[in-house]
């Protein structure tokens, strides 16, 4: 009995310690005088690695998700004779929920895991240590560009995902199921509000992006420098990010709907 309580206590303290370390890491990366001349090219490289290289999966998933939502929505709406409302249905579900959440989940799987594995391997092969011994701060040279790169990439990916998904729904609804294109767009335009739906969705994606990349960077930086350690860190990075996305989505939605 005592041992269980001790184990629980130790687990609690460890978790707190991890949280503290993660917070410190974020603090030290964000509140630092940025070196624009050296930092900008590095950050752009990471926007390329995390954003541009994720484009393919984002576009393909966006297209299919839009198409599936349109197909499902059409058959449900048709039962109530409201098939004309397909545009609003797709646009609202994509801009408010599916866009930010699915993009963030894909981003965690595609870019977050890659960042964790890369940083973990750099640590295991003593690249971070040798950088430190060359009087170059790895936080500034390695961690910070990756964090900012992910931070900038996520909202951009979400915007592209949203557009592609709505276009996919247009393909299914208008081109395949034969809805009227004018009604599709005009119903969408009357129901979707730019601030409440589009901008709030993008705000969500900014928060998700920061959290995903923060978790990825932290797991990589604190990974045990062995092959098993890096494998574990990569798994944790994806699992924790996904949980954080879904949990935060609820909180953010409640905040936005509740008008906090």
């Amino acid at each position: 009995m005592m041992t269980h309580i001790t184990a629980l206590g130790r687990w609690g303290i460890d978790t707190l310690e991890q949280l503290g370390k993660a917070g410190l890491l974020l603090f030290r990366v964000i509140f630092r005088v940025p070196n624009v001349k050296k930092g900008l090219p590095l950050t752009l490289q990471q926007v390329y690695a995390e954003g541009v290289l994720s484009l393919l999966i984002i576009v393909v998933s966006g297209l299919f998700i839009g198409m599936v939502v349109a197909l499902q929505g059409y058959h449900t709406l048709a039962k109530f004779g409201a098939a004309q409302q397909l545009g609003p249905l797709v646009a609202l579900s994509v801009t408010r929920e599916l866009g930010p959440v699915v993009t963030a989940l894909l981003f965690a799987g595609r870019a977050g895991s890659a960042v964790t594995a890369e940083i973990g391997l750099m640590k295991a092969t003593e690249q971070l240590s040798s950088m430190e011994m060359m009087a170059v701060d790895p936080l500034q040279r390695v961690i910070s560009p990756r964090l900012w790169g992910g931070f900038f990439s996520m909202p951009l990916l979400t915007m592209i995902f949203n557009t592609v998904a709505i276009y996919g729904a247009y393909l299914v609804g208008v081109k395949w199921l034969g809805l009227d294109a004018g009604a599709f767009w005009s119903n969408m335009q009357t129901s979707v509000d730019f601030h409440a739906d589009v901008i709030n969705g993008i705000l969500k994606s900014i928060v998700f992006g920061l959290v995903v990349i923060w978790i990825a960077v932290f797991q990589g930086y604190e990974a045990t420098p062995t092959s098993a350690g890096i494998a574990g860190a990569t798994t944790r990075s994806v699992v924790y990010s996904s949980l954080a996305i879904l949990g935060l989505d609820f909180v953010l939605t409640a905040m936005m709907i509740g008008g906090w």
């Binding site: 750099m122 092969t125 003593e126 040798s130 950088m131 011994m133 060359m134």
Partner: peptide, 19 residues
Amino acid sequence: LFKLRKKMGMLFQSGGLFT
């Protein structure tokens, strides 16, 4: 410390080259 490290070189066991 960073200034002092510029006067030190260290060769790690695995080399630590940037891949």
